[in-house]
Design a protein around this nucleic acid. Structure first.
Lengths: 391, 391
DNA sequence: CAGCATTTGTTCGTTTCCGCGACTAATGCG
DNA sequence: CGCATTAGTCGCGGAAACGAACAAATGCTG
């Protein structure tokens, strides 16, 4: 759309082929042609270009049992990848994730106290250097960082990450300086939504809302028209602070009666007994406990969640709502209960055909989302992969 | 983006030229080249094509006092236009609006009772036929209809327009059948937002929220990334049903404590005295009355509005909020009051740099929005204007 | 197993459309 | 009145996609 020359057509076609492979997996050149609507000769030329750039590998023709000449296989290169970095209160995860969304390497470092940004930058860059990605044949395009908090996406400034106790920390700039790689920092829920869109419960859905409930609170992200809705500076999607009651309970930014103030994992956990529990155990423990106390608490939580979701449905008219973390457990406990509560709060036409489902992706969700964020510029302009820049 | 051939480049370039003229007004061919970044010869060819299609008029070169050869002027054709139809409880407005957003003809018919859909269709098609648009040299591309209610945009089915007491009315299909013209039906606030985006307080702003307060309630629309956010079926933007209090007051769809239940023009009007008042009189009457009763009511209304806007800011991270109708009066009464109340409810980073302004466009706002919605397909594919179809 | 239909790869000519350069035209300025 | 500046016009070249013609590789059928 920018210049309007024929090279843009080429770029768009290269991107279309790459995207087809990313969502559809490896396939034959003929399939690629059908999927992208391009001509045989065009596809051949495009694939040849991409192979030359090292982004895909052309394989020998394989017969698949049908008549006709077998078509060459085309596979995403297993060497093109990006780093994913995910700092949490108790650990830092660094991974190498390929263009095919496979997690190739993964290192987790536990902290005994909340890390500072400088510590995270230092540790992450050390780990990335130690991984020897280039020596192992990976061609790294950049670094994607998933941060539990508000991030100014343009420069990766972490505005406020309450759980990490970070405020106005220049994470993007620091990490870029330490590694000399392009760095993309974003909110964790947003990156999770991207991963769900491409490989999870959001596949093929162009309007959906993702809401994740964790120990630290509730985060969300919006996909509209197939694109992540970031807003003016990337702060969009903060559904946790939506008002759901007139109570005085405040969330961690001081907003009273908000979703995050009323719906907490902590409260449910206290009813179940143990002080700590990993997400899977929490889910099964909650679903197993049908006591009155738990049922009442779940009902109240569902009611509050439904009010927030009602706003979401009325304002955004999504076709699907993805619930992650303990919000998925809340749904599973009584799916119809949540739906009924929501229907009382949403405009009937907007509510029609809205799916409420659990998010699909598990542990690697954020790593895939973060890495793919870093791979995005390459996918949008494959020709930029010229010299396999290894600096 | 679809096929990936060189004809797409042509189409995009034609669109770019047309859009430049729409937002920038008539200009010289040289300016057009600078604005669109295209080459001199390319612009000449594009303009020549558009002139051949009858979409622009090429004028004689005019000297503007600067050195160098004068450039040809290019003006949007004054004959290309669309119908705008706007049914309200007490009147039906039909207009002819040009590509240049000028309202060329306007007919308003008053009702003595709430009209049915069939009556509106019948009257609108009669009026449009009587206007003799084709005979007057207009080339009409379609009909845009602004409806105060929920509209399924794909086929123009009015799902629920409470004030008109319409439910499940096939307005789009009926009007298309009666007129044999392409019909585009949409929510009035959405069309107003489009007009504000192109010609009003939303110019050059790619993320904004438009909220309009009228006698019938509160409607809204969202522009994200420069595009109207319609959601899955076009129902998005319903900000009036956002929860703002724990009270039991319900709005017209039964949602308690919603913005529309708590913030009403009616309530303010009752404090000012008269039973009926046109918007302009209401605005000046409200701003003139600094009594304690009014001040307290305004403060309460502002507080509730701020809660809804807080949700909007947190979820959408807009760069501007446009207030229309009596919500603009509410803002003007005490701009700082609203802003302060909002800042208590919004995440500080998301709130940074958010403008809160009044909508700019007046009476013709919806007519321009509706007609331009009908002109959009033409702008997106100028070459489709082949035979100046007059059926 | 030999021919045939089917499907795909390959090559090459055609078409479209943009940019560029050379030349011409029209203006203001000194 | 010449010169600099700016824009229109025309022709050429390059990029890229498509389609046609041909070759290659497979399954199917008699």
């Amino acid at each position: 759309m920018r210049k309007g020359t024929s090279e843009d057509v080429r770029r768009e076609n290269l991107t279309a082929v790459l995207r087809a492979l990313m969502v559809g997996g490896d396939m034959s050149r003929a399939d690629l042609g059908r999927l992208t609507g391009r001509n045989r000769s065009t596809v051949a030329s495009l694939v040849s270009d991409l192979a030359g750039l090292g982004l895909v590998d052309e394989q020998d023709p394989v017969t698949d049992g049908t008549v006709g000449r077998p078509s060459h296989g085309v596979a995403l290169s297993s060497s093109v990848a990006a780093f994913a970095v995910h700092p949490e209160v108790d650990a830092l995860t660094v991974a190498i994730v390929g263009l095919d969304a496979q997690v190739r390497r993964k290192v987790r470092h536990e902290f005994d106290r909340i890390p500072t940004m400088a510590e995270v930058v230092h540790l992450a860059s050390t780990v990335m250097a130690a991984m020897g990605a280039e020596e192992s044949g990976f061609r790294m395009t950049g670094i994607g960082v998933a941060v539990p908090g508000l991030v100014r996406t343009v420069d990766g400034l972490v505005r406020n990450a309450p759980h990490l106790q970070w405020r106005e920390e220049p994470l993007g700039a620091s990490l870029a300086e330490a590694t000399s790689l392009p760095v993309h920092v974003a909110n964790d829920a947003q990156l999770g939504a991207l991963a769900e869109r491409d490989y999870g419960a959001g596949r093929g859905v162009s309007h959906f809302v993702y809401i994740n409930g964790g120990a630290s609170g509730i985060g969300g992200a919006i996909v509209a028209g197939g694109d992540l809705l970031g807003g003016a500076h990337g702060y969009a999607g903060e559904l946790g602070h939506t008002p759901v009651s007139g109570s005085d309970r405040v969330d961690n930014v001081g907003i009273p009666g908000s979703l995050e103030a009323e719906v907490t994992r902590e409260e449910l956990l206290s009813l179940l007994g143990p002080d700590h529990m990993d997400p899977e155990s929490f889910d099964s423990a909650l679903l197993a406990d049908r006591s009155d106390a738990v049922a009442a608490a779940v009902a109240r939580h569902q009611r509050h969640l439904a009010i927030a979701l009602g706003t979401v449905v009325n304002v955004l008219n999504p076709e699907r709502i993805l619930l992650g973390g303990f919000l998925a457990s809340l749904l599973a406990y009584n799916p119809q209960g949540l739906r009924t509560a929501l229907e009382a709060r949403a405009l009937a036409p907007a509510m029609e055909g809205v799916d409420i489902v659990s998010a699909q992706l598990g542990a690697n969700l954020l790593l895939v989302g973060a890495a793919h964020r870093a791979l995005e510029p390459l996918v949008d302009d494959p020709a930029s992969m010229s010299g396999a820049r290894t600096d």
